[in-house]
Structures are given as structure tokens and as C-alpha cells.
């Protein structure tokens, strides 16, 4: 026989579960029916957490710097004799210069892209990744304070990265183009065949709605068409990797131009998208 106290505890847990389920369902319903902008809860929580991510990014950065510039250096010094001391220092200096050169090159590429674009942009650093494996997003260190707003395009020297979906005051959530719900108006640079590039949730992209009479071959460069009103026209999206023409609608696989796993700095397009036909710098195949 089950004691009364245990039964009461069980029923209490059951009521609690029921209340939690009802609460969640109401919460989901409210959002699904709503057509308004970003929910306040989302913006506030994201804003607060972005500060935590900023701190973590700074901490991991300083740990990496400490490791690279101090601990590793100390180990080298400990292992070497006094005669090798100068050599060790030179090696470290070379490493620092190389790191500096890499960073300068990366920033120079961003600057070059920025100058070549006829658009107002701002540079931002990536400080965090997605909170759940089912979404492909990153957090950048610029927010509404710097003029960022929903649906602003985010680009890199190699091509387009994604769009701003949640801007808080000092940080923003960016939906990557490879996210399942992401899409961009696209055009094949060589033949001008139009379509829509969509994310797959994996590291590749897919081009849909391409006419079966279009001229598309493997290796073609796909660029933004600008029709979505988010991404400036002519920026590189990727390269056609495979085409399955057996079914009614073509299955076109695309390898993104941007390596999303090694992104560190990006540019956010602050002004509305360009309507000129001239391809942007990043569009050159």
C-alpha cells in the first residue's frame, strides 16, 4: 500500500507538470499568433546573456593570450640554456609579428571590402555561438547602440554571412545563412539564372526555385540578387557543388564561400541594400 504522503507528493508533482505544460503552451501560442517584432523577454534575456558572453569571450581571449604569450614562452625559456635565450625571444617575436600580420591582413581585407562597397558598414567581432545545436547563429559585439537593427545584412570578405535577427543595446544575434530557416535571393553569376538559396542546418546550402530550363553547371558562382531587400546585390554566396536534374525540381547543392567555423570579424551593412547592377567586390569569382 502506498502511504498518503507519497501519494500527495506524486499528485503535487503531477499538478506542477500540468501547470508547466499549460504555461509553455500559452507562451508558445502567444508568440506564434503574434506578428510583431522581437519579444521583450527575448531581447532582455539576450541582452543580459550577451554581456556574459562578452565576458567569457574576453576571458577565453586572455587565457589564450596568456597561454600563447606567457606560459608557452616560459616553458621554452625553462627548456633552453642561456645561450638559446635570445633565439627564443626572437622566435616569440616572429610569432607575435605573424599573429599581428594575420590580424592586420584580416582587418585589411575587411577594410578593403568596406571601402569597395558603396554601403555604410560597421565592423564587429563574434563573441558567442548558438545556445542550442538546432539553430545556427552567432553573437556579435555591436548592437542598437551602434545603429544595428533587425534584418541588416552581415558580410565577410569571402561573402555573405547572415542577417541580424535580435539586436540588443551592445550585442546582436546573427542568423547564419546556413541556418535551416535562413534564405537569400540568389542569381548564378555566369548565366543570370535566378533562385533562392536556403540553409540546410549543416555546412552546405541549397538553391531552390531554379527554372529547369536554366543554364547552371557545377562550379558556377552564385551571388546575391538583392530581391530580398536584406542582402546587397552581387555579393558572393558560394559555388555550385552538385546538381541533381533527375527529379522535377532541380536539387542544386552549394558550398558557401564563407567558412562559418572560422569567422572572427564581420561587417554589418547599416544602410539599405544597393540597387545597382554592378557586382560588389566580394562577388568576383
Amino acid at each position: 500500500m502506498i502511504p498518503m504522503a507519497r501519494l500527495e507528493t506524486r499528485s503535487r508533482a503531477g499538478y506542477l507538470l500540468l501547470a508547466a505544460i499549460v504555461g509553455h503552451v500559452l507562451l508558445i501560442s502567444a508568440q506564434v499568433n503574434s506578428k510583431s517584432g522581437v519579444p521583450i523577454l527575448e531581447a532582455v534575456t539576450f541582452g543580459a546573456f550577451a554581456e556574459l558572453q562578452r565576458g567569457t569571450a574576453a576571458l577565453t581571449g586572455s587565457v589564450r593570450r596568456t597561454w600563447n604569450e606567457y606560459i608557452a614562452l616560459r616553458q621554452v625559456r625553462e627548456e633552453n640554456e642561456a645561450l638559446k635565450h635570445r633565439l627564443a625571444e626572437t622566435e616569440i617575436q616572429v610569432q607575435e609579428q605573424r599573429a599581428l600580420a594575420d590580424r592586420t591582413r584580416s582587418l585589411a581585407e575587411l577594410l578593403e571590402l568596406r571601402q569597395s562597397l558603396d554601403l555604410k558598414t560597421t565592423a564587429a567581432e563574434i563573441i558567442g555561438a548558438a545556445s542550442t545545436p538546432d539553430f545556427r547563429t552567432v553573437t556579435i559585439d555591436k548592437g542598437s547602440q551602434e545603429g544595428l537593427a533587425v534584418d541588416m545584412a552581415v558580410i565577410a570578405p569571402a561573402g555573405i554571412v547572415g542577417r541580424v535577427v535580435i539586436p540588443s543595446q551592445r550585442a546582436s544575434k546573427v542568423q547564419l545563412l546556413i541556418d535551416r530557416n535562413a534564405a537569400a535571393g540568389a542569381i548564378v553569376a555566369r548565366s543570370r539564372a535566378q533562385g533562392v538559396v536556403v540553409g540546410t542546418g549543416e555546412t552546405r546550402l541549397r538553391m531552390d526555385y531554379v527554372s529547369t530550363s536554366s543554364d547552371v553547371v557545377v562550379g558556377d558562382t552564385v551571388v546575391t540578387s538583392g530581391v530580398d531587400g536584406i542582402y546587397p546585390k552581387g555579393l558572393v554566396i558560394g559555388r555550385v557543388d552538385n546538381i541533381d536534374k533527375t527529379s522535377g525540381a532541380w536539387q542544386i547543392g552549394i558550398v558557401p564561400a564563407v567558412d562559418f567555423s572560422s569567422l572572427e570579424q564581420v561587417l554589418v551593412v547599416l544602410a539599405p541594400t544597393s540597387t545597382s547592377d554592378a557586382p560588389q567586390q566580394g562577388a568576383r569569382p
Binding site: V25, L27, L41, F49, S131, T132
Partner: peptide, 14 residues
């Protein structure tokens, strides 16, 4: 987790 993602708040919670 929902609030920090770009999805609907409550689905992951539920």
C-alpha cells in the same frame, strides 16, 4: 535556452 536562440520561446522549455 529558448530566449537566447532565435526560435519560439517555450518549445525548448516544454
Amino acid at each position: 535556452q529558448d530566449a537566447l536562440s532565435i526560435g519560439v520561446i517555450g518549445i525548448g522549455g516544454l
